[in-house]
C-alpha cells in the first residue's frame, strides 16, 4: 500500500505554522522572521532531498550510496565544527570520527544481515546515525569546554600535584561522557512509551506491519545509542589534549588555537 498526502492538504500546513507565528507576534518574541524563514528553508530542503534521493535511488548502489554518505558526513562535519571552532584540527577530527562511526555501524548492519546494501535502507539509516553522532559530538565539545572552564582550579591543583594532563582531565572527561550519554539512556528507556520513534512511525505510515517496523526501530535505536557513545568518547579523548601544552600547563580557551 502506498499512501500519499494530497497537495492541497500539504498547503494547509500553513495553519500549523500560523500558531507559533501568532504566539511570536502577540508576545513579541522577535522570532517572526525565524519562523517564516525556517519553514520555507525546511520545506525547500526536504523537497530538494526528495528529488536527489529519487535520482540516487536509481543509480547503482555502489555509486549512489558513497556519494550520499559523503555529502551527509561533510555537511554534518561543517555543522558540528562550529561547537569547537576554538580548538585546532576540529574539522578533520570530526570528519575522521564520523567516517569511523559510519564504517563501524554500516559493516555491522551488513555483516549481520540486518539490512541490505540498497540506498533505500542504507541512506535513511545512516542519516540517522550520522545526524545523531553529529549532535553528540557537538554536545560533547560544548560540555568539555565548560567543564574545563568551570574546573580550572581543580585542574590546576591536579597538575600541581604532579598529574599528567590525561590524569588531570580524567574527571572532566568523565562528566562530559556522562552528560552526553544520559539523554540517550533515558530515551532508550522510554522508547515507544512517550512517543513512537520516527523511523517506526514512518514505516507504519508506509504500510509496514508494526512488528517489522519495531525490528527496524530496534536496529536503528541501538545503533544510534552505540554510535553516539563512540562519537562522544572519540571527540573527548582527542580534544582534551589541546587544553594543555607540552609543558603540562593548562591553557586558556583563547590560547588553545595558537598553541595547536
Amino acid at each position: 500500500m502506498e499512501r500519499d498526502i494530497p497537495t492541497y492538504s500539504l498547503l494547509l500546513l500553513i495553519v500549523f505554522v500560523m500558531i507559533p507565528f501568532t504566539i511570536a507576534y502577540i508576545y513579541q518574541l522577535g522570532l517572526k522572521k525565524d519562523i517564516i524563514w525556517s519553514t520555507i528553508r525546511g520545506t525547500l530542503q526536504l523537497f530538494l532531498i526528495g528529488l536527489i534521493l529519487t535520482y540516487l535511488f536509481d543509480l547503482p548502489p555502489l555509486v549512489g550510496i558513497p556519494i550520499m554518505l559523503s555529502v551527509m558526513i561533510l555537511v554534518a562535519t561543517f555543522h558540528a565544527r562550529k561547537k569547537g571552532k576554538e580548538l585546532p584540527y576540529i574539522f578533520i577530527t570530526i570528519l575522521v570520527g564520523l567516517i569511523g562511526v559510519e564504517i563501524i555501524v554500516l559493516s555491522m548492519w551488513l555483516g549481520f544481515g540486518m539490512i541490505s546494501f540498497t540506498p533505500e535502507e542504507v541512506i535513511p539509516m545512516s542519516g540517522m546515525v550520522i545526524g545523531n553522532s553529529m549532535v553528540a559530538m557537538g554536545l560533547a565539545l560544548e560540555r568539555l569546554k565548560s567543564e574545563f572552564e568551570q574546573n580550572r582550579g581543580k585542574l590546576l591543583a591536579a597538575l600541581s600535584l604532579g598529574a599528567t594532563p590525561k590524569h588531570a582531565a580524567h574527571m572532566s572527561i568523565k562528566k562530559t561522557l556522562n552528560a552526553s550519554l544520559i539523554p540517550n539512556i533515558d530515551q532508550l528507556k522510554t522508547i515507544g512509551l512517550v512517543q513512537l520513534p520516527g523511523m517506526m512511525t514512518g514505516l507504519i505510515l508506509g504500510g509496514v506491519a508494526p512488528i517489522i517496523a519495531i525490528k527496524y526501530q530496534l536496529v536503528i535505536s541501538i545503533s544510534i545509542f552505540s554510535s553516539v557513545s563512540l562519537s562522544a568518547i572519540f571527540i573527548s579523548m582527542v580534544m582534551y589534549r589541546f587544553f594543555f601544552n607540552k609543558q603540562m600547563q593548562l591553557l586558556n580557551l583563547q590560547d588553545i588555537k595558537k598553541n595547536g
Binding site: A157, A158, S160, L161, G162, T164
Partner: peptide, 30 residues
C-alpha cells in the same frame, strides 16, 4: 621531569579546589 618536579615543589592554591569524594581520596591523589 615535570610531574617529579611538581611533586617535590608543591603548590597550595588560594582556594582549596578539592577533588570529589572523600578527604582520603584527596590525600592519596598525588
Amino acid at each position: 621531569d615535570i610531574p617529579q618536579l611538581r611533586r617535590s615543589v608543591g603548590l597550595v592554591l588560594q582556594q582549596p579546589h578539592l577533588f570529589p569524594d572523600t578527604v582520603l581520596d584527596n590525600l592519596k591523589f598525588g
